[in-house]
């Protein structure tokens, strides 16, 4: 199987014969982090995409640049290293992925885990709750018991709470857009009057 520094590539289980060779000796690509944003206070974090970064602080900064640009108003951002996200099986045809798991929740409260659900194909994962459990499999069983699921869940991502790097609430002013940056918005460019005046002048 092909090996890559990008865990998402490894999960695909591509045969060696596929495409260009990975893991060349000069590989200097950074690891990937998954970025999640909160659109309004109290709303759950939702996945927006990935960034490549050398560490979680840089990943957070790159994510802010990449995913919270003008016109996209958010109030919180967090990142998780891709390899620290445990991914469940993917189901289909209205089959809830929790129905496919086996075993019972151990009841142990060793670690805290955050659980993200995918409830619509084509959309992105949303934070659904936190659980205490012994390990990732156990966290899945715990989530099955304790997190309410109004809709079918097709895929679950689980990460340890301690592996999440998030913005601080006290730094909320970083999300304010400066007034003098209007030149970055379409609305700042009005043209109709000028075209009209030009046409009248030509007529």
């Amino acid at each position: 199987m092909l090996e890559s520094l990008d865990p998402r590539v490894n999960r695909l289980g591509l045969p060696d014969s596929f495409g260009s060779p990975f893991g060349s000796s000069s590989l200097d690509q950074f690891e990937t982090y998954e970025a999640f944003v909160m659109t309004k206070p109290g709303k759950p974090f939702e996945h927006v995409g990935i960034v490549h970064a050398p560490n979680e602080e840089m990943a957070w900064l790159f994510s802010k640049e990449q995913y919270t640009r003008r016109g996209m108003i958010y109030c919180a951002l967090c990142v998780i290293k891709t390899e620290n996200v445990k991914v469940s099986a993917v189901t289909d045809n209205d089959l809830d992925v929790y129905t496919t798991i086996e075993g019972e929740y151990s009841g142990q409260e060793k670690d805290s885990f955050e659980v993200f659900h995918l409830i619509k194909r084509g959309k992105q994962h949303k934070h659904s709750g936190s659980v205490m459990a012994a390990d990732f499999e156990d966290a899945m069983r715990s989530a099955n018991q304790s997190i309410e699921r109004p809709k079918t869940v097709y895929n679950v991502w689980i990460a340890k709470t301690e592996d999440i790097f998030s913005s601080d609430e006290e730094d909320a002013d970083i999300w304010d857009t400066l007034k003098e940056k209007k030149y970055r918005d379409a609305i700042d460019y009005k043209a109709a009057d000028k075209i009209k005046a030009f046409k009248e002048e030509q007529a």
Binding site: L2, S4, L5, D6, R8, V9, L12, L14, F18, G19, S20, F22, S24, L27, D28, Q29, T32, G49, I50, V51, H52, E65, Q66, R69
Partner: peptide, 20 residues
Amino acid sequence: VGHAQLLYGAAETLGKSRED
């Protein structure tokens, strides 16, 4: 340049690394 980052990220999900 930001758009390129988004697109490379999407292409990577298909199994080709950004570096390649």
